[in-house]
Simulated scan of single mutants.
Amino acid sequence: MDPIAVIDFETTGLSPAQNARATEIGVVIVEDGVIVSRYQSLMNSGAHVPAFIEQLTGISNAMLRDAPPAAQVMHEVADFVGDIPLVAHNAAFDQKFWDAELGLIRRTRRQSFACSLLLARRLLPQAPSHKLGNLNRWAGLPSTGTAHRAMADAEMAANLMGFMGAVLREYYGIGQVSHELLCGLQKVPAAKIAQALARIRQAAAC
Rank of each mutant, 00 (worst) to 15 (best):
H130T: 10
R106F: 11
R169W: 05
L119S: 09
A158H: 01
Q176M: 12
W98Q: 00
I105K: 12
R122A: 15
I105F: 13
A191R: 14
A150W: 04
V177W: 04
M164D: 02
A152E: 11
P128F: 14
D153V: 01
W98R: 01
L160R: 01
N136T: 15
I174N: 01
L185Q: 02
R199F: 13
V167S: 04
R110A: 13
A127C: 12
L141I: 07
L197P: 00
A196K: 08
Q176T: 14
E155R: 11
A196V: 02
K131R: 15
L117Q: 03
R122S: 15
Q186V: 06
L104P: 00
A158V: 03
L123T: 04
L168I: 05
L124S: 07
L117I: 03
C183E: 10
P128S: 08
P189H: 07
H130M: 09
A152M: 11
R109W: 07
A198K: 14
G103T: 09
L124Q: 11
R137L: 13
M164C: 04
Q176P: 00
L104F: 11
H179Y: 10
A166F: 01
A196P: 00
H179D: 09
A150L: 07
V177H: 03
L117V: 03
E170G: 00
G140A: 07
A166G: 04
K187R: 15
I105S: 10
Q176K: 12
L135S: 03
R137K: 14
Y172T: 01
G175Q: 14
D99H: 05
E101L: 12
L124H: 08
H179W: 08
G184Q: 13
R106Y: 11
L132Y: 08
